[in-house]
Structure formats: structure tokens, C-alpha cells
């Protein structure tokens, strides 16, 4: 078990290192680190000094080492546009994105899994067909269009919910600003989280359906029928459990991609999160933010993946055996 965990951690570090390499390449060669410090009218002499002080004349490998060393300490440089440390900008906006992503993931799992199970078990029922059609519309409509649609309906036409921003936020324990504790904060979360979660929900529903149909055809379910177990036991004790084992992996990946997908939703709803910051960075060629966002997102992904893999091992006894052995 320990060997497995260590191997998994090493693998994750390799992935992170690759991404960090990419981020460094962007930071050093695509962007211009000097531009972080100087403005257009800085004399050439001063620019040279800055270059020197940043160590840009050192060998590339040394520079990379330095970049990585700083990145580990959460120092990603200074944003070109805001002239503030990148990490500070990201930290301010992280709670907004994480809250949105968590609520959306919860929604997509809580609705997507039952819908998938239902459409698999009652394959030919009217509701299953309706769900199937909705899911196809869900994967076909671009996220931003869904957001616009919801805004037009619930904010512009009906005026029930706000169309932008986080509403009133409360700062908890000094650093985490949450919208979960106020009515306006919760109301502001509804449309963005539906927008963000809908696509994932339909994906999860389709995945669960396909997986469950596969499981229902398997030998051990046939044998469970032959043993005369109740339909309920066959469907929910045996088939569902077998279905959910692979779904865990995908759901973990979904949670990761939801954070990245937030870019679109945050733009539509002017949500003050990391995604909106990243988009602004892309538009304004703010390389330090782009590089930092890339690394933070991949760190999140890698962590989630690792947790999911370990979780998998706990759910599936066969895997547990191979890990022990």
C-alpha cells in the first residue's frame, strides 16, 4: 500500500515538473520578465540593471531552478497589468472559484448520477427518453449560451436572481470570503452554478447510463437474477456499486475540469474568480498570471487524481489486493 502511494506521488511530481517546465518556458521566453518591473520610459541603463538583478543573464538551467524554487514557495512573480504579486491576486479570487466549482460539482453529481441510473434501468420509459434528450441538448449547448439564456430568463425577464457578481460576501477567519452565508450571496450562486454544472451533469448522466447498461449485461448480474434476488437488490446493491467504481475516476476528473471550465461561467456572470483573472491575463498577455494559473490548476488536478486513485483502491477489493501484493 505504501509503495503504491509513494509511486503515485512520484508520478504526480513528474507531471507537475513537466507543467512547471512549460510554465517556465512561457514565463521566460514568451513573456518578458523585465516588463514586470520597468515601464516604457525607463532608461536603458536601468533596464540593464533590472535584467541583472533578476538574474536573466544567468544560464537557463539556473534560472529555471530559481523559478521552480520560488514557485514552490508560492512566488509566481508580479502581474504585468496589476503590478501586484500574482499569488496575492490569485488568493483573493480563489474562494469565489472554489465555492462555485464545489457547488456545481455537487449539483452535477447529485442530479447526474440518479438520472443516469434511472435512464439505464427504465431505458424505454418516457422520462428516460426525455432525460436522454435533455442530456444531448446539455452537451450541445455551449456553456456561455446556457448562461446567457438563464440570465435573460431569470434576471432580465423575471428579475428573480442577480445576473452578475457574488452578492454580499462575508470574510471568514480573516482570509476566506464566502458567499454561502448571506441570502444575496446564495442567490447569486444559483445561476452560475447551474450554468457551470449543467454540462458536467449531462456528461455524468450519460456516463453512468452507459456504464450501468454495461454492468447489467455482465455475468454476475445474470447470476444474481438466477439466485432470485429482488430487483431492488440486483439494481442497487450489485449493479449500482459496480457502476460507480469507474464513475469515481471520471467524477474526479470532472471536478478538476469544472474549475477550469469556470473561466467561461465567470466571464458570463462577471464572477470575481480565478478564471476571470486568467482570461483577463490571456487578453492582456499577462504571462506571469497565465503561468501561475497553469501550475495551480495542474497541481489541483494532480491532487484530485491522486485522491481519486487511492479512493478507488478502497472501493474495489480486487485493486486493494494488487496494491497490497
Amino acid at each position: 500500500m505504501l509503495a503504491f502511494v509513494i509511486r503515485r506521488i512520484l508520478q504526480s511530481c513528474m507531471v507537475l515538473l513537466t507543467v512547471a517546465l512549460l510554465a517556465f518556458t512561457m514565463f521566460r521566453f514568451v513573456g518578458d520578465p523585465v516588463a514586470q518591473i520597468v515601464s516604457l520610459d525607463t532608461p536603458a541603463e536601468e533596464v540593464r540593471k533590472v535584467r541583472e538583478s533578476l538574474g536573466l543573464d544567468d544560464p537557463v538551467i539556473v534560472q529555471m531552478g530559481r523559478y521552480l524554487y520560488k514557485a514552490v514557495q508560492m512566488d509566481f512573480g508580479i502581474s504585468y497589468q496589476f503590478r501586484q504579486p500574482v499569488i496575492q491576486l490569485l488568493a483573493e479570487r480563489a474562494p469565489a472559484t472554489l465555492e462555485l466549482a464545489l457547488i456545481s460539482s455537487f449539483l452535477s453529481l447529485a442530479i447526474g448520477i440518479p438520472m443516469g441510473v434511472y435512464t439505464a434501468l427504465r431505458r424505454d420509459s418516457l422520462f428516460a427518453r426525455v432525460f436522454q434528450s435533455i442530456s444531448l441538448v446539455g452537451v450541445s449547448l455551449p456553456t456561455f449560451l446556457i448562461g446567457i439564456l438563464l440570465i435573460y430568463l431569470f434576471a432580465v425577464t423575471l428579475g428573480w436572481l442577480p445576473s452578475f457578481g457574488r452578492g454580499q460576501v462575508v470574510t471568514v477567519s480573516g482570509r476566506w470570503s464566502t458567499g454561502l452565508l448571506t441570502v444575496s450571496g446564495l442567490k447569486a450562486l444559483i445561476l452560475p452554478s447551474i450554468t457551470l454544472g449543467l454540462y458536467q451533469m449531462t456528461l455524468i448522466m450519460r456516463l453512468v447510463r452507459a456504464e450501468m447498461l454495461e454492468v447489467l449485461r455482465s455475468d454476475h448480474i445474470k447470476f444474481a437474477r438466477a439466485r432470485g434476488l429482488t430487483t431492488r437488490a440486483i439494481h442497487f446493491r450489485h449493479a449500482l456499486k459496480s457502476t460507480l467504481v469507474p464513475v469515481i475516476t471520471i467524477a474526479g476528473l470532472q471536478l478538476g475540469s469544472i474549475i477550469a471550465f469556470a473561466v467561461i461561467t465567470e466571464t458570463v456572470f462577471q464572477w470575481p474568480g480565478m478564471g476571470a483573472l486568467f482570461l483577463k491575463a490571456v487578453q492582456n498577455v499577462d504571462i506571469p498570471i497565465m503561468a501561475a494559473y497553469l501550475m495551480i490548476i495542474s497541481a489541483l488536478f494532480v491532487t484530485i487524481n491522486m485522491v481519486v486513485d487511492l479512493l478507488y483502491a478502497f472501493v474495489d477489493p480486487r485493486l486493494r489486493a494488487t496494491i497490497k501484493g
Binding site: S257, A260, F278
Partner: peptide, 28 residues
């Protein structure tokens, strides 16, 4: 396949945004 694995962890839209940002930076 490792490259593919790493890339698979990023949603397409993010990759597209990154490519876009890099080209934009290079084509000043």
C-alpha cells in the same frame, strides 16, 4: 502517451486559451 496523459487532465478550452495567449504574446 505521457504527454497525452498530462494534456488529458486539462480541458480543451484551457489549452486553447493558453495557445491563444502565447501566440498573442509572440506576435506583439
Amino acid at each position: 502517451m505521457r504527454v497525452a496523459d498530462v494534456q488529458l487532465t486539462f480541458p480543451a478550452i484551457l489549452i486553447a486559451l493558453l495557445v491563444n495567449g502565447i501566440v498573442q504574446a509572440l506576435s506583439k
